[in-house]
Design a protein around this nucleic acid. Structure first.
Length: 797
RNA sequence: GCCGGAAUGGCGGAAUUGGUAGACGCGCACGACUCAAAAUCGUGUUCCUUCGGGAGUGGGAGUUCGAUUCUCCCUUCCGGCACCA
């Protein structure tokens, strides 16, 4: 027998697979289709990370198993290659981002191939390829035509170090999501996408998809749907009305003051009536200087100023109430104004206490609730005129109706800031004409390609580097033919990834982003695995684009992904995140070199639950390697004798468990089950060839190279990956004898072997003969006995 | 603060329609092989113990013949959101 030498085996089979094209998904097969997707990586200069290997291997295991079960599997890969690190590298070195991208993708491709993932490389895509981003631009134009893309001057989050505008989703703790630098608010004209028009459907349709719970919750939370009512308050001695949004119209009688956001136009409109206008202006100035971080950083101490001379009328009881401005009310949410009910809202309560405002309870507090806390729950109304005694849920509708309010649903979700003042992104295909305003580039002119530039840095005034190239910027208006200028902003790097899964179905189509036929064949994605960090960004954006395309009749389903799962991070040995600066990064290249791709794969599947973060342990990895070596050596144990009865049962149990565990992503227990079977083979010391070949098949999805080699050396023809997945015989799984556990008062006192399905009376008889059992019931009366078939006898004394 | 998730040997983890806690792997100890070492193989490995047993799945109560699993309260850790009316 040869030694197990991964260095010769792995490249050998990788080449055979590539030459045979056996992982190319068929566009003509009648077999059941299965579209498996992992997030395509940003090809960074650091190369592949062991963290990439986990999800790629996991769905590769599923892909290989399902192919063996006869399905036509599409499992593609590509590159999400626009982005800042490449651009920053270009700024530093002067090398064109295109060249950097080429180097990086070549490296990534080579690395991924070295771990034997069965991607269909014939469908490889790259978001920076003009043939690809032509269609990203095309989709933008369709959004524009439908009024879903618009330009707006607005306060955006500005990253001081990237010199770039950021979407809200890209700001984390007031810091830039990408570089971690400080951000501030800045007024700037930006292209926006009206994702909020899809808020309701993005929320509701989560009911119909099979996403893991934490993804659904993350999206729901981000969309922030909230049902309530809009109610108008008259302003005393004025024609003005103030409209508020509330989720608790039932507490209207408890409204003792109102608050409007400092930015609310009401303040300017009413300035003549405001007696303390200087004080108000001082407050406005103070808050406008504050960033969101500062507003929240002050321990949430609420502040505000009363608008003296202004009174609002509570429509429920016609009482005059004061009006405040305070920065705890947000201008962009609801109507930018609230009715304050300090008895039943914690924020209002805090504010009312600080400014000595009346607090009127209108919902009866249940007796068990602490009187110190603000009661925000449901109950029976009090101090509410004719609504006294009504239950809060019903009162919401009744009071809203009484004061002519209207039901209203609001969302936290805000429109998507789509402009970036950067070079390395898709140019936004719009032209500005003095006469005609913003004009879309004609579709026949797409793609608008990125021009060559000398400097990649954004300009000091925050404009894109494209703005300095006059011959590119200056163009003619598609409508009037007069002089006009191109938009120099580019798209954010979420653009290309918002539809890439569609392109895989028909990657070379020059007439459409994908043909209807291809889309019908492959969509929707059956199973999409990716990181939790993309729950509110990529996943929401791509669902939005897909729903838009569905509305246009361009894709066959309203949801792009049927099932979404998520992998846990791989941490460094000590449990910290792997990072270059800490020097604790494990390079998959080194691992493949030293112990082989199969060992790496088996280890990553075995290390722990797939959805859980887990520390890397090079020590533990040797267990995976030892296991493969034992499988290798077990060739020697193949003998002509018939299969041991216990081993046969174990084999069928193994087939069942591995088959189920793969589908449930319990890869760790699938591998351990294979190990148990291997232990069984060694214990018996012999195995039939047939049973050994089944072990090879079950292991094949996890360790595709060594199993090919073993399959071949056992004299089998063709690839193990093209064989039929083993089936188990449920008759052969059942044990003929079972271990019966004997308990006395619930404590284990002994056990014995008995034939399967033995009667209780017989079992009890045997149980009572056990010495230890006798010792524990000695002199006591047996109250009752409990029998769980084929499991245990419990004697209660 | 709110919403999720988690807590099991020296370590990663396994086991739930409630039924032998610690599968599998790592590590460790001892033994075999070897001049020796590595590799490999074998045996053992939750803790305490007066060797009869006893305790034990973050802590405390409860339901049950029986609880890692179900209920209530609490602690700690991780992740997400954060003045959203």
């Amino acid at each position: 027998m040869k030694e197990y030498d991964h260095k010769s085996i792995e490249p050998k089979w990788q080449k055979k697979w590539e030459d045979s094209g056996m992982y190319v998904a068929s566009d003509t097969s009648d077999a059941k289709k299965l579209y498996l997707l992992v997030e395509f990586p940003y090809p960074s200069g650091d190369g592949l990370h062991v963290g990439h290997v986990r999800p790629y291997t996991a769905l590769d295991v599923v892909a290989r198993k399902r192919r063996m079960q006869g399905e036509n599997v599409l499992y593609p890969m590509g590159w999400d290659a626009f982005g800042l690190p490449t651009e920053n590298y270009a700024i530093k070195t002067g090398i064109h981002p295109k060249d950097v991208t080429k180097q990086n993708t070549d490296n990534f491709r080579k690395q991924i191939k070295s771990i034997g993932i069965s991607f269909d490389w014939s469908r490889e895509i790259n978001t920076t390829d003009p043939d690809y981003y032509k269609w990203t631009q095309w989709i933008f134009l369709q959004l524009y035509k439908d009024g879903l893309a618009y330009k707006d001057k607005m306060a955006i989050n500005w990253c001081l170090s990237c010199k770039i505008g950021l979407a809200n989703e890209e700001v984390v703790d007031g810091k830039c999501e990408r570089c971690g630098g400080e951000t501030e608010k800045r007024e700037k004209e930006q292209w926006m996408l009206a994702i909020t028009k899809y808020a309701e459907r993005l929320d509701k349709d989560l009911d119909d998809v099979n996403y893991i719970e934490r993804v659904v919750l993350g999206q729901r939370n981000w969309i922030g749907k909230s049902e309530g009512a809009e109610i108008e308050f008259k302003i005393k001695d004025s024609k003005e009305v103030m409209c508020v949004f509330t989720t608790r119209p039932d507490t209207l009688f408890g409204t003792t003051y109102m608050v409007v956001a400092p930015e609310h136009p009401f303040v300017a409109e009413m300035q003549k009536s405001i007696k303390n206008i200087d004080e108000v202006r001082a407050y406005l100035q103070q808050t406008s200087k504050k960033t969101d971080i500062e507003r929240t950083a002050e321990g949430k101490e609420k502040s505000g100023v009363e608008l003296q001379g202004i009174k609002a009328i509570n429509p429920a009881n016609n009482k005059e109430i004061p009006v405040f401005i305070a920065d705890y009310v947000l201008a962009h949410y609801g109507t930018g104004a609230i009715m304050a009910v300090p008895a039943h809202d914690e924020r209002d309560n805090e504010f009312a206490r600080k400014y000595n405002l009346p607090i009127v309870e209108v919902v009866q507090r249940p007796p068990e609730k602490n009187e110190e806390t603000v009661y925000t729950g449901e109950g029976i109304l009090i101090n509410s005129g004719k609504f006294n005694g009504v239950e809060t849920q019903r009162a919401r509708i009744a009071i809203t109706k009484e004061v002519r309010g209207r039901s209203k649903t609001t969302f936290k979700l805000r429109d998507w800031v789509f402009s970036r003042q950067r070079y390395w992104g898709e140019p936004i295909p719009m032209i500005y004409c003095e006469k005609d305003g913003w004009v879309p580039v004609p579709e026949t002119d797409l793609p608008i390609e990125l021009p060559e530039v000398e400097k990649y840095e954004p300009t000091d005034d925050g404009e894109s580097p494209l703005s300095t190239i006059d011959e590119w910027v200056n163009t003619v208006c598609p409508i009037c033919g007069g002089p006009a200028k191109r938009e120099t902003d580019t798209m954010p790097n979420w653009a290309g990834s918002s539809w890439y899964f569609l392109r895989y179905t028909d990657p070379k189509n020059a007439k459409a982003f994908a043909s209807t036929e291809s889309l019908k064949r492959w969509m929707p994605v059956d199973w999409y695995n990716g990181g939790m960090e993309h729950t509110t960004l990529h996943l929401l954006y791509s669902r939005f684009w897909h729903k838009f395309l569905f509305d246009k009749g361009l894709v066959p389903t309203s949801e792009p992904y049927i099932k979404r799962t998520s992998h846990g991070l791989i941490l460094a040995d000590g449990g910290e995140k792997m990072s270059k600066s800490k020097g604790n990064v494990i390079n998959p290249n080194d691992v493949v070199e030293q112990v082989g791709a199969d060992t790496l794969r088996v280890y990553e599947m075995f290390m722990g639950p797939f959805d859980q973060a887990i520390p890397w342990s090079t020590n533990s990895m040797v267990g995976a390697r030892r296991f493969l070596e034992r499988v290798w050596r077990a060739q020697e144990l193949i003998s002509e004798t018939s299969l041991d009865e216990n081993l046969e049962r174990l084999l069928h149990q193994t087939i069942k468990k591995v088959t189920n565990d793969i589908e449930n992503m319990k890869f760790n227990t699938a591998v351990s089950t294979l190990m148990v079977f291997m232990n069984g083979i060694e214990e018996v010391g012999a195995i039939t060839k047939e049973a050994y070949l089944m072990l090879i098949q079950l292991l094949a999805p996890f360790a595709p190279h060594i199993t090919e080699e073993l399959w071949e050396s056992c004299g089998q023809k063709g690839s193990v990956h093209e064989t039929t997945w083993p089936r188990y015989d449920h008759h052969k799984i059942k044990e003929t004898t079972v271990t019966i556990v004997v308990q006395v008062n619930g404590k284990v006192r002994g056990s014995f072997e008995a034939p399967r399905d033995e009667e209780k009376a017989q079992l009890l008889e045997v149980a009572l003969t056990i010495e230890k059992v006798q010792a524990h019931i000695d002199g006591k009366k047996v109250a009752k006995t409990i029998h769980i078939p084929n499991k245990l006898i419990n004697i209660v004394v």
